[in-house]
């Protein structure tokens, strides 16, 4: 199922790049998308976790604009480094979920992820503190 999503994403990129919907073109894109090897980790990736993570990343985009305006209007006070716990962790960390988490943390301008702490328990996050506290991101 998760492999299907990956193949669909590849096909989407091909169609956007070539921008025509003729049968031959779609067939070429589908063949290439199927022929490229799938990462082995994707097979044990649960779809619900992927969907939830994807939705959280999408929700981070309007928040990013709000934080950008806050950052531009008033100078930030100080910088702190803090730990943020990982949400999903049965067994080894899954590459796609880590990617989405890092994306969600880094796209908001006040925070940058600095990598994982120890054996995948939490992310180290560098944060600019503004003088007035911002509303916390939902889902933490």
């Amino acid at each position: 199922m998760a492999g299907l999503i990956v193949i669909g994403l590849r096909l989407l990129i091909w169609l956007l790049l070539s921008a025509d919907l003729e049968t031959a073109n779609v067939a070429i894109g589908l063949a290439v998308a199927l022929a490229l090897p799938l990462p082995r980790r994707h097979r044990q990736l649960p779809v619900s976790a992927l969907g939830r993570s994807l939705w959280a990343s999408l929700k981070a985009i309007p928040l990013a604009y709000r934080e950008a305006l806050a950052l531009l209007i008033r100078r930030p006070g100080r910088e702190v480094e803090e730990l943020q716990p990982v949400e999903y962790r049965p067994g080894s960390p899954v590459a796609a979920l880590v990617f989405l988490d890092v994306f969600r943390i880094t796209i908001t301008p006040l925070t940058i992820a600095l990598g994982m702490d120890g054996p995948g328990r939490s992310y180290r996050v560098h944060r600019l503190e503004s003088h007035h506290p911002l509303p916390q991101e939902p889902g933490r």
Binding site: A68, L71, L72, E79, I107, P109, I112, H126
Partner: peptide, 14 residues
């Protein structure tokens, strides 16, 4: 340096 990276994210991405 990290502060500059924050600002660069504002400029280049957003």
């Amino acid at each position: 340096y990290l502060t500059k990276l924050h600002y660069l994210g504002v400029a280049d991405t957003l």
